[in-house]
Amino acid sequence: MADTFQLEIVTPTKQVVNERAEYAEIPGKDGYMGILPGHAALLSMLGDGELSYRVGGATNKLRVTGGYLEVRDDHVRVLADKAE
């Protein structure tokens, strides 16, 4: 099984992140979700909060506000109203 997944974080104006990540912790509307490779397909609304993800052992953090989260196949897509 693959040990990374494609993490895409986009806002209405631009693509913020598009890389292979090993782990992501995403603020869903009803609480934080940890996502590892091989996660089942999932749809959720996004809450406000800090999104962190790990690429090559290094953890990156972003503030996201409102939007959607889609997990599907090998892709994790975060559609945020704002991400910075």
């Binding site: 895409e8 806002t11 209405p12 104006t13 631009k14 693509q15 959607y68 889609e70 559609l79």
Partner: peptide, 19 residues
Amino acid sequence: RALGARPYREMLRQILENV
């Protein structure tokens, strides 16, 4: 900018379709 907005739009449409 218009190009940068494209991925978001595409993904949103996909999600909407499914939902």
